[in-house]
Design a protein around this nucleic acid. Structure first.
Lengths: 195, 195
DNA sequence: TACCCCATGTAATCAGTTACATGATTAT
DNA sequence: ATAATCATGTAACTGATTACATGGGGTA
């Protein structure tokens, strides 16, 4: 029972339950907006993990509320399991980018197709950056009392900005249009930050 | 048979087979170094997908060579399947970052633990940046004839540099040490690129 | 000859995704 | 009354990870 090994998804749910009892639905919404961009989890997973953790005693289900809402609360055992999880090094980042696969195999993809994919992908990231900027604008006053959420938001901003900068450096074979005038960086030597 | 739907992993293998027959082992090595950073795939998957694609006629196995090496060659059917895959928009990027999960849940993690995780994670990315820089230094002459691989490499460089820049902006509660003197960017208004 | 790496594969498990079924509540 | 949304859950599947089994071939 004490050897229930948490995966990071389950641990994240326990993490949010530190702030008080939440229903599966609550957690779906919360996780989606707070960590969804770098740790996706689906509604199915949430209910599955909650059921498993309840069976293992890490959380307890409360009374069913209005719309069958069933809040789960963290137990001392759950707290301990979370601490055990937190005591381990977080695993390595993994990226899954079908678009970069396109680029890597670009030699074997019709140019028009590749260029269209570039445009679509750039548009996605422009939209995502705008979204982050909007959130950041409304939440700039957080500062001191929300450093954790703010840090992840700032990561998102930096990430999207980086991608758009990278798009601007693509050669015409890939982008379909001339690169913006930026340090061309194909003239040898290790790359250096422009920041 | 013609309706064999490729997943991106299988498609990537077909992509590399455009350059000539390769064995499973070859593909494990090639994919690991060429796309491994943004599209991980394991040896098991490679052999599984090769077997499935061979059964579907997308590739054909050649004679077994020295150490039981068995080269697979692309067939016209496989080429067509690849083209069909390439004609679709690539799916969205997904990030899986346990470390950011740590940061997001930082409020509930002992500070010393969080700071240690930050140090370890930063070290990882410093090492990764150095690796990319080394590759870039040896391959700077590619330029025109390897634009695709170069673009992915330059993505890696930009990504790692972005992360290290982000680390420098972390507040002491998270990093354990004072942030570097950079545009503090917590003073309101949407973030702007510093590039 | 002994050992290590090359190379192919299988088995078992876990995690993640999609689709669907069901019923309660609120809004129109 | 009807539709939309809230909320919980199940089923089926696909993909990814880990571990292991097996044997060839080169090297010390």
């Amino acid at each position: 029972m004490a050897d229930f090994t948490l995966n990071a998804t389950a641990a994240s749910l326990l993490g949010f339950l530190h702030e008080g009892p939440r229903t599966g639905w609550d957690l779906v919404v919360i996780t989606q907006e707070q960590i969804g961009e770098f740790w996706s989890l689906t509604q199915s997973q949430v209910y599955r993990e909650l059921a498993a953790m309840a069976a293992a005693g890490l959380i307890v289900a409360g009374e069913r509320g209005p719309r069958d809402r069933r809040p789960y609360a963290l137990t001392p055992v759950g707290r301990e399991a979370f601490d055990t999880w937190a005591a381990r090094e977080p695993g390595p980042d993994t990226l899954r980018m079908p678009f970069l696969l396109y680029v890597a195999l670009g030699r074997h993809i019709p140019p028009a197709r590749l260029h269209a994919a570039v445009r679509a992908h750039r548009a996605r990231h422009e939209a995502q950056l705008a979204k982050y900027q909007a959130i950041h604008a409304t939440c700039a006053e957080w500062g001191a009392d929300e450093p954790y959420t703010l840090a992840t938001l700032r990561f998102g901003l930096a990430y999207e900005q980086m991608i758009l900068d990278w798009f601007a450096t693509l050669p015409p074979e890939i982008s379909g249009s001339a690169p913006a005038r930026v340090p061309t960086s194909t003239e040898g030597g290790p790359a250096r930050s422009t920041a």
